[in-house]
Design a protein around this nucleic acid. Sequence first.
DNA 1: CTGAAAACTGGAACACGTTCTAGACTTGGG
DNA 2: CCCAAGTCTAGAACGTGTTCCAGTTTTCAG
Lengths: 246, 246
Amino acid sequence: MSRPAPIAAHAALSPSPPGRREAAKADRRARILKAARDLIRETGETDLPMRRLAERAGVSLATTYNLFGSKRAVVLAVLEDERDFARRLARLEAPDSLSRLFAAHDLAFSYYAADPDFYRALWRTLLSSSGADETGLASPERIRETRAIWLGLLERAEADGWLAPPVSRAALERTLAQLSAGTLLFWVTGALATERLAPSAGLGWALVLLGCATPAGAPIARAAAARYRAALRAVAAPPDPPAELP
Amino acid sequence: MSRPAPIAAHAALSPSPPGRREAAKADRRARILKAARDLIRETGETDLPMRRLAERAGVSLATTYNLFGSKRAVVLAVLEDERDFARRLARLEAPDSLSRLFAAHDLAFSYYAADPDFYRALWRTLLSSSGADETGLASPERIRETRAIWLGLLERAEADGWLAPPVSRAALERTLAQLSAGTLLFWVTGALATERLAPSAGLGWALVLLGCATPAGAPIARAAAARYRAALRAVAAPPDPPAELP
DNA sequence: CTGAAAACTGGAACACGTTCTAGACTTGGG
DNA sequence: CCCAAGTCTAGAACGTGTTCCAGTTTTCAG
């Protein structure tokens, strides 16, 4: 009647039943993910067709749909595998907890600048099939995990006396997330050049945090805003409003 | 089997070449747009299939692709037809030019609250095909037009001494646009309930504008933030796990 | 009035995501 | 060792958006 529930991401970690069957399954999963990464990296802008993906992974098309439930799930898994944000954040140094917030932001967006075509293709595919099921833009675990990271950074900056937001910390985090998402959306749809992506998002963050800063924190936020503005000015070329009307 | 000939009644609206050919073309365009509106409104969540759209409009499938270039273009035209934002903005009253900015924001988002399913389906379709060509999320004219409106409102608030942004007015406008887009994206992907859409976006605006406010303007922005926060609290139940990006 | 250009029409075709079925294979328990 | 359950495979099928073609109708110009 119904397809067996797709295996949860990172299921290969469960150590309980080593069984040969599970091992083979995990291997197939890994092969599919690798094939997806390679295909996107090779074809650049093209979005990976499922049939070619299965062929490349040495696996049947039906198997791909058995292991992941949809193309969306494959891309999501690739995207979540690709980033070790938490680890790199841990060894990130900053003069104070407010600057650390901006440093974390820069780190988060550095991935896109490092491999724009790859991530653009990924996000494009993700957006293209966002309406099918009710799933959002990331897996629930990843969302919870990421939120916790940002909330922790905000809490620290607040405790250190840099921030005194007029709204709840959760609401502030949400605003920052929406700002990032919107900037990313502009970038994915071609309304924002890659070199302007991180500064543009950072400028938004600086303005929001400036609105939440204590008198002590305000200069730091203002300095961040100035820094991002300078970065934007350095690539001042008009960000090509997409051409149409033939 | 012959289809009734296209009616050419009172088609003398176009100024330059009234020609019967152009009139018939415009009539077909209008029929297609009306069919699209009706189909989305009826089927709700379903995205309109092009074949049924053509059939409903009494037009061949090929004709639809001749007049609009793609499904995306049809949806875009529907979306831009549906809104008379500029006109309603003109007769919008507010105690001061900063409050007027918030009132304009509320007006912009009121459309979505009034007909959520319709607009959600529209945006979903728009996002689904955003990667095909290089076009962004709106037509260039519409983008220019809308930007001009917001820039005008910001300029007025600045001239009246409510705002003193540490960045250019254009950058501020861009930040607000990205914030709105991100909030809208969360809503479209189901990460944000309809009742929380406008307050959530408004809260972001309030925080950003608070960061750009003069001492005179700060209380107004803070009051707006409090108002949006109250609205959010009124529908406090977090309906679904929030999506998050970076 | 006549011919040519323009626009529309029906229909086939392609590539895609997704689902389904029937058969073949592997694995693990008895 | 053997069998039942689980899994994979090949392939067809459906509904998409989009393109293309041949044939027909409609309009406009001379």
